[in-house]
Design a protein around this nucleic acid. Structure first.
Lengths: 139, 139
DNA sequence: AAAAACACTGCAACATCGTTGCAAGTGTTA
DNA sequence: TAACACTTGCAACGATGTTGCAGTGTTTTT
């Protein structure tokens, strides 16, 4: 609870119930969430547009980051401390083809890729799809 | 020209002018294209819906594959021979933040990633963002 | 060569997703 | 607590993507 407010204040955002709820939802469900997921969870309390704007704000402030897979756009909490100025840019995500959930794989580093001459890389984003431990265990 | 027909026939598709044009567009512009790009290029000749369906068909037949970046969904030709049954699943794409174009990096292999225990990977998709040789050269 | 079966296209209508302007409400600071 | 700036909800809009259907063009069958 207090932690939520700290997070918001730390990113120079006013604490509102909508922002607290969105943040709380991200922290409870561990996987990446789409706007639709949030609307499903909070839609009766807040307007669609407000949720869009909350996501946009969180993105700009570096509280969440985009997660992409073949089904569309999702968002996940930034584990590393990100701010408006500096955003941790390397991400590895794992999407389970069985349950459909996408998670950040922390503590993994993307190995060096030998790019052709002339390319100047700035950020890396790796999406691995397959089966997650939970779904493998249920067979 | 003939090559186009061969590609279509090879994937058990009828040759229609729309499919030829879409395929041609992919071959001319080397980078990944969105539906909007194709609509811009061919929209006066073909219906929006037809282009959607053409993309869907090409996807199913393994002629093109999805390319994702933070701006949305795009498509690119499959260089490796893909068919309905077998689809080459590892992709590396480079998106230039300057010109906005996304290209497939062929002949690159994604290095092994040490996944946490219990994860069973099936496909890899790496997006590298940065500056491309063309844009670097223009400075 | 004609008929039957199939596949492709365009149109219209619809559903979903995301954005913008504005007025009213709320949090923050002095 | 008063003033200000930020946030929210509403309404309207635009963009994106899907579905059903009728008409047309291709194959296939006989």
């Amino acid at each position: 609870m207090e932690q939520l407010r700290e997070t918001l204040k730390g990113h120079h955002l006013r604490t509102t119930t909508c922002r607290e709820d969105v943040l709380l939802t991200f922290m409870n469900k561990k996987n990446a969430l789409s706007h639709g997921d949030l609307e499903g969870a909070l839609g009766e309390n807040y307007d669609r547009v407000t949720i869009y704007r909350t996501l946009k704000t969180f993105l700009e402030k570096g509280i969440i980051h985009k997660v992409l897979d073949d089904e569309g756009l999702r968002y996940a909490l930034c584990s590393h401390q990100c701010s408006e100025e500096k955003h941790q840019h390397d991400h590895i995500h794992f999407k389970c083809n069985e349950c459909g959930k996408t998670n950040c794989l922390e503590n993994l580093h993307i190995p060096n890729v030998a790019l052709p001459a002339g390319y100047q890389p700035e950020s890396f984003n790796l999406l691995i799809q397959g089966k997650c431990p939970e779904c493998l265990g249920n067979n």
